[in-house]
Design a protein around this nucleic acid. Structure first.
Lengths: 216, 216, 216, 216
DNA sequence: AATGAATGAGTATTCATTCAT
DNA sequence: TATGAATGAATACTCATTCAT
């Protein structure tokens, strides 16, 4: 509940402050582009500076170093997702609909930031062995909170007899893995079917597979 | 005559040749370690040399450059997996047992090369945007062949009425994603349960979820 | 405002620009020293950097790479010579005096850049087999233009009956070769006679040898 | 007069010795090729070894290091020239004919080793500032002896009233420079005229220019 | 505050030379 | 004696970071 949502620019005190925020946002936008296109190591500060139309020195006035810039990009990414998650998923009371909404959100989020898969992957807990790319604590917690929130939805569904009696954590991890796999597949193969159709398929398949069958 | 670990290589003619192969293998081992620990860019040839107890120049005598070294590491990884796949999965006629064997193989393979998750992820089609890390054609085909082989198993199962009537490709992708997700999860959390137990759970959960129910 | 040596450069707009030019010139000066002393391959960027009192990175900010640096050194060399050629030789109408001026210019130019003989030799068409040292087109043309200009002087002299009826191209090549030979000789032997005397001897000998004799 | 002409393989003592000499000669042949093609720095020992069909180690058994190999190549070059010089030029008593023969020899020698211009240039006294390419004393003396021998011919001619009363050293240097210039020119331009014609032209031009005119 | 030139540590790669077989 | 694998110092080039203007 600490004020980490200042990032979305609630009107800040002074005009100076507001401009500073604006500049940060522009730089973060450029950085997202470049990191997404090249990955962490191959991206250069100079290129980010050029893309953002600021001087290199300015980036260093606003961000401590390359690492922090990277983390802030990811943070923005995560925050945006979390907000949409709260808005479109967590508020849905029916667990089946919530999961459907989650699938929808994840796929659309991915499509909107398609170039970002690379970062998305580097985000994966699995690749965080390298201390140089280790996410700072607060960002790691975000992911854990996400897992907990989704797991809670599944638990509710199971408890209510909507979903099969499976360990909800299993369901969370499974759903996440499945979505990742499909996005990776889609991102390299020519896909058939519109986005809506593909989302709908995923929803039907996944939910159908874990929903309690009335006839049982 | 101390060729102790002649395990995987085709029987080589001369002693010279055999030693050369042995050295290549040692270097590949070191490279796997370092690449896994640091990722492609952050890994340095010098560190790999140190780890392998050879001089830098020796690495370059045996491998064209850093890229080739990286590709050979992945190739070894893939080949080993493919051999075990053929031996332990593709030869199994019963589709349910085949999938169970596949899950077992994937998880054990991962455990054996735990540090390798990073490379495993970088292998993912999704991260192959960066031309510098683009896999050579032959290695890409290996992955496609894997997908096809597994899909064939599912298709057989579906045709025989063992599995629910789901698009086999969906099942392949889904299974892969789920396994990845669990491995990532296990690799960062303290796991409870032995490896066998966890494998067994995964098998039960996944297969149970797609198996045709006789009572239907 | 301490732009002390604005000698050769076009009047540059901003102070920034002017300083940049100044730094380029300083680096080129150091590079000339080192290339002259060691030749292309044996010269190292680090040494040039040390000599120029800049950091290695700075050289790379101002020049694309070692090759470009080398070419720019030669270019500076050629341009300076060409300017003096136009000023002191090509403007002279009397062909005998023009050739005398040319000899004077060549020798003095050499004395001023004595260390540069090596580059001067590497410039020779004969040594341009090595693609890595191949001069860019524009610099090659400069040399061809030089040959043409001098040949034109000789032709004029021959046509006017000042010089013997010899193929002017022969005269050009011959003069060039003779000057080179003497400079090489002087550069390794102890010379006797002042620079002026030696120039005067060369002029008298060469011109005397090709001048039409009135008594004929 | 020390026996440095053993290089041309007078029958050596033991068979072992003779074979050793044979190997040296083969390696020198390969080295000449490679040095000529690439220049000193760009030539690699490994390539020379490959060309000579010997192992790298063998080269090092027969020659101290790259430098010595280079010097021996040049030595062979010089010795061959000197022998022909003695045979075809120094034995000629008529100074005009001797100079004609010298021109002929120089040009043919060049044509026979056309690729060797690079080394020929690197041989030039002017480029011997770099200690790493400095020729050993004995080879430097060879060149000085050549200069002396040719100068002696000119002196004789002058003394006998065949050539104009010019400092013979001037004539030697001048002739050398002229020949160099023409060879360089021919090596890059399409030449017109057969080798014989070109040699004849050079002889006529040069000698005609310095010959005492009877009508004086 | 913004700039971007200067910095120099860091990295992939090459190649002369050695030495165990 | 011949071999060629192993060595590691040397070198061109990059790029995150600093700081004077």
């Amino acid at each position: 509940m600490n004020d980490d949502s200042e990032i979305l620019s609630e009107p800040c005190c002074s005009r100076k402050e507001r401009q500073r925020e604006q500049h940060r946002r522009e730089i973060l936008g450029a950085a997202e582009q470049i990191f997404a296109r090249k990955g962490y190591h191959a991206a250069t500060i100079e290129e980010i500076a050029r893309e953002s139309q600021f001087a290199v020195g300015t980036l260093y006035n606003l961000f401590k170093n390359k690492d922090e810039l990277y983390h802030r990009v990811i943070e923005g990414f995560i925050c945006q997702f979390r907000e949409e998650l709260e808005e479109k998923v967590l508020k849905v009371t029916d667990s089946e609909q919530a999961i459907a909404a989650l699938i929808d959100l994840r796929v659309r989020h991915f499509e909107r930031h398609r170039e970002f898969i690379r970062i998305s992957l580097e985000l994966s807990p699995a690749s965080r062995l390298d201390p140089c790319r280790a996410l700072p604590k607060d960002l790691q917690q975000q992911h854990e909170r996400y897992v907990k929130a989704v797991t809670a939805i599944f638990k509710r569904g199971v408890d209510q007899g909507v979903f099969d009696a499976v360990d909800p954590l299993y369901l969370t991890l499974g759903l996440d893995g499945i979505i990742n796999a499909f996005m990776a597949y889609w991102s390299q193969q020519e896909v058939n079917g519109s986005l809506e159709e593909r989302i709908h398929d995923l929803q039907r398949q996944f939910i159908g597979r874990i929903k309690v069958r009335l006839t049982d």
